[in-house]
């Protein structure tokens, strides 16, 4: 079992506060124009928040290497779905024939 002697409350509270601040930040950022960076900023903050939850609240920090591989491969397969589907959508219309 995952035994760690020191109390995690301090860490948990720090993560909690960071998550709240990040939520406020992502909202504030959305009301200002950063051009092409609008979506990347929003996604970067979301990935950071999600990683904090996975790493600290879900104990992946203390987990076996296998658990860490499972987590990473889940997101890796999601990326396969996204990137190969987008390889179609983003390269449509690159040939001068209608529909191609």
């Amino acid at each position: 079992m995952t035994e760690h002697a020191e109390s995690p409350i301090g860490t948990y509270l720090a993560v909690f506060v960071t998550l709240l601040v990040m939520t406020a930040l992502t909202t504030w950022v959305a009301f200002h124009d950063w051009g092409a960076l609008n979506t990347p900023i929003a996604l970067a903050i979301a990935v950071f928040k999600g990683s904090l939850v996975v790493w600290f609240f879900m104990h992946v920090r203390y987990s076996a290497r296998l658990t860490q591989i499972v987590v990473v491969s889940g997101f890796f397969w999601l990326l396969i779905l996204f990137s190969f589907t987008l390889s179609d959508y983003l390269s449509r219309g690159m040939l001068p024939f209608p529909g191609k």
Binding site: T23, T26, A30, F31, N38, A42, I45, A46, K49, G50
Partner: peptide, 13 residues
């Protein structure tokens, strides 16, 4: 955490 910015915060400016 992902749904919030992707649904609520599109081009809010």
């Amino acid at each position: 955490i992902f749904l919030f910015p992707l649904l609520y915060l599109i081009e809010r400016h």
